[in-house]
Nucleic acid binder design. Sequence first.
DNA 1: TAGTTTGTACAGTAAAAACTGTACAAACAA
DNA 2: TTGTTTGTACAGTTTTTACTGTACAAACTA
Lengths: 178, 178
Amino acid sequence: MNGKERLEKTRERVIESIAQNIHLYGLTPSSGRQFGTMFFHNEPLTLDEMTEELGMSKTSMSTSVRALSDLKLVERAWKRGVRKDLYQVTDDWYQSFIDLFSIKWRKSVNQHSIAVRRSLVELEELVVDPSISEEVKELAHIDIEKLQYMRDYYEWLDRLVDAFEDHDIFNLVPIKKP
Amino acid sequence: MNGKERLEKTRERVIESIAQNIHLYGLTPSSGRQFGTMFFHNEPLTLDEMTEELGMSKTSMSTSVRALSDLKLVERAWKRGVRKDLYQVTDDWYQSFIDLFSIKWRKSVNQHSIAVRRSLVELEELVVDPSISEEVKELAHIDIEKLQYMRDYYEWLDRLVDAFEDHDIFNLVPIKKP
DNA sequence: TAGTTTGTACAGTAAAAACTGTACAAACAA
DNA sequence: TTGTTTGTACAGTTTTTACTGTACAAACTA
């Protein structure tokens, strides 16, 4: 095995490892391979170059580079004289981790909080409604407690995402300087 | 709409919200619905009861309750006189959040760290190998720097999971007492 | 202006994942 | 022991997701 091949092998191992773990970001192995390829490529890449490198259709490259961009794992790059869109891997991975929570978790927390609060309001109305039987009211009281627990938990998650965004997390778990 | 129906509606809203957000845990909406159903059910449930409640096959209930158990979102329960397996939702959701990292993220971090370290070793060998061209060595040096960055990042993630497991995260983001 | 190039929408296809029903091993009952 | 009950492995099916190729709008070029 020559030097070039040995180098390539070390890259392939890491790229495949990224591909197999990127499901934590809700992305497919293909997107992971694309990300890994861009990571080791020392210049920004065009969609056509990705098509070439990965042997997949340009349409696929377009959709999955968008998925990577949405999570801010890759970003647009500019290079004078190049008309095609260029993409490169975001260089701050700690920030990318935080972005995952800012984008995906925050959205879920918000959606879920709304549902919980809406149901809580309806249950509070129900327990003071004179037309409702005691039996149902008792069940409603149990549900209210459960929903209050959920609401508090999601409020905690919200504060956790704040702590990530504000970089307070780095006080608790410091980044070691090289 | 009578009381029972109004109560049911508030539950359904929350269950559907769980179903739509549980992908963050790498689970399917069906598993989320199962989890939600168990959450509002005030007694532990058997597989047959879940089949009944959710209108799905017992096989599906078995596999998805296992997925929920693997992430410690549900746990076995015991009730004297009942021979069937009983399951209930884990009551500490903060701990469930931590378990997600202990189980899924820790595993990914380990796998990935191994791949990165292995490749780093091979690249270090490569750059001191006299039979390798200078051109390739230069590329190898660039890759070594990239892999060192990855290694440091994954080491940070590992410490982050530690901070979750040790509950240090609650110092940074406290749980508000009721 | 017309002629290219580039990225993506959309419809169709291929691949993967979720789900079902059968069949059976393990645990329990009599 | 034999007869039930219970959970799950496995094969087959359905549904969903990923991927491709075509077709076209927008942006650029001359």
